[in-house]
Design a protein around this nucleic acid. Structure first.
Lengths: 144, 144
DNA sequence: CTAAGTGCAAAATGTTTGCATACTT
DNA sequence: AAGTATGCAAACATTTTGCACTTAG
């Protein structure tokens, strides 16, 4: 979880800068590659993958792995936001694919329960709740 | 969620039969391939993948996709068991990789909360909680 | 000057697909 | 007989890695 980078490189700065401009947005490694290309700031994809993983370790990014066929996506969290004030949970709709962000106090009770009763320290940045969102549920009902 | 298979084949029967003997166990497609080979009941891997996916749709199996580098794993649930009696939650340790099963009433409150307050119908079979397990936490502490 | 980071192209991995063959009904 | 499933091998997509080269400190 600690910082691993020894050197500060141009590529790392460009990457972090870009991510910082899109807080709350989910980006795949490929999205980022494309963006860089279209900016003329081309960074090699291996570097992107390497830095991304590192930033996750540092707690600056969170990573969501939906499944093996969907590229992982990354979201800027920032160094500060996870001090404890605003844990963020995510729900992924299995139907329409939308990813819903939740800042919910009640949900934070889960962490405590898991810790207290199961000795498990939840990483809420990495955990994604799968299910069907409101909109898709309504569609289902009206279709019957 | 509805049955999709039209024909009942030998391979499907062998597969279901094997899965049925290991309820609550997590198996990867590869585990199953290997088992079949070692049994002399070799089933092609494409068939295994195809049937597995189908069984998930039918609600007989649940599938956990940890991330792109980890093969998905499948667990026998059975046609009956998800009537509502025993929702199963899973915690995945990010450190040692172990997958912990939880049959916990309190956790089921999450489903209700998500439904009631966020209009989201949780699929607990597909949801995995990431974090650090008890054992790894102790190791961490003793190492400092 | 040395350690670390970059980027290409190649490898690795898990999963899916095309197609000829075989099986179910 | 018609429709479906099988199984091989090839295709895929994402991510990782080997290595020569560049850059940061």
């Amino acid at each position: 979880m600690a910082s691993r980078t020894k050197y500060r490189t141009k590529q790392r700065d460009i990457l972090v800068e870009f991510l910082k401009t899109s807080p709350g947005v989910h980006l795949t490694a490929n999205d980022i590659c494309e963006h860089m290309k279209s900016c003329g700031e081309s960074i090699g994809q291996s570097t992107i993958y390497r830095r991304l993983e590192e930033l996750v370790d540092e707690g600056i990014l969170s990573k969501y792995s939906i499944d093996a066929n969907t590229p992982a996506c990354f979201e800027y969290i920032g160094k500060d936001s996870h001090s404890d004030g605003g844990t963020c949970f995510h729900c992924k709709c299995e139907k329409c694919g939308s990813l819903i962000h939740m800042h919910c106090d009640e949900m934070e009770g889960i962490s405590e329960h898991l810790m207290g009763h199961h000795g498990f320290r939840l990483n809420s940045m990495r955990t994604v709740f799968y299910g069907i969102c409101k909109d898709c549920m309504q569609e289902d009902e009206s279709r019957v």
